Amino acid sequence: MHRVPLLMAAVFMTFACSPDKGFGESREVEAEDYGSDWPLTVESAILSCSPEGDLFVQINGRAFGLNTATVEDADPGFRRVWAANPGNGGERMDLVPLIEDARELCE
């Protein structure tokens, strides 16, 4: 009798830990795919497009919106992984390559 609740809890935990977090279409991308245009300080991320057309980048299990990706509007957690632009002191790397690839998932 006690096994059923444990089994159900395990199933729910599996869904809660799934990489796409229910955001619709998703695709893993890696730094090597983008070369010097890679705008993050982590080696990989998951791009997603929600059924409503919202764009997300998921890093270490946490999703961040790409639709309003300005430094001022960015989540503090995202700013920690958004790479500084080495050729333009103080500015961040351009997110357009990630945004374009995430947008393709909406089509």
Score class of each variant (00 low, 15 high):
residue 68 T to C: 01
residue 68 T to S: 04
residue 50 S to G: 14
residue 69 A to F: 02
residue 56 F to I: 05
residue 39 P to R: 05
residue 33 D to M: 14
residue 30 E to P: 12
residue 55 L to H: 11
residue 35 G to W: 06
residue 55 L to I: 11
residue 66 L to F: 07
residue 65 G to I: 05
residue 67 N to M: 00
residue 51 P to F: 14
residue 81 V to N: 01
residue 65 G to A: 02
residue 33 D to I: 05
residue 62 R to E: 15
residue 66 L to Q: 10
residue 47 L to F: 08
residue 32 E to W: 08
residue 53 G to T: 10
residue 69 A to M: 10
residue 66 L to S: 07
residue 74 A to V: 00
residue 33 D to V: 11
residue 52 E to T: 05
residue 40 L to A: 12
residue 38 W to Y: 07
residue 71 V to P: 07
residue 70 T to M: 09
residue 80 R to Q: 14
residue 44 S to H: 10
residue 57 V to T: 14
residue 78 F to S: 00
residue 63 A to R: 12
residue 74 A to G: 11
residue 54 D to R: 11
residue 36 S to F: 13
residue 67 N to D: 07
residue 36 S to K: 15
residue 78 F to W: 08
residue 70 T to C: 07
residue 50 S to V: 04
residue 33 D to A: 03
residue 72 E to D: 05
residue 64 F to Q: 02
residue 70 T to G: 06
residue 35 G to H: 03
residue 64 F to N: 13
residue 59 I to W: 03
residue 72 E to S: 08
residue 73 D to F: 03
residue 34 Y to V: 06
residue 68 T to N: 03
residue 66 L to D: 00
residue 61 G to D: 13
residue 60 N to M: 13
residue 63 A to P: 13
residue 48 S to I: 01
residue 70 T to V: 13
residue 63 A to C: 03
residue 70 T to W: 05
residue 67 N to C: 01
residue 67 N to W: 04
residue 61 G to T: 15
residue 68 T to D: 05
residue 74 A to M: 09
residue 56 F to R: 04
residue 63 A to I: 12
residue 74 A to H: 09
residue 75 D to P: 06
residue 46 I to A: 10
residue 49 C to Q: 08
residue 47 L to G: 00
residue 64 F to C: 09
residue 46 I to E: 07
residue 81 V to E: 12
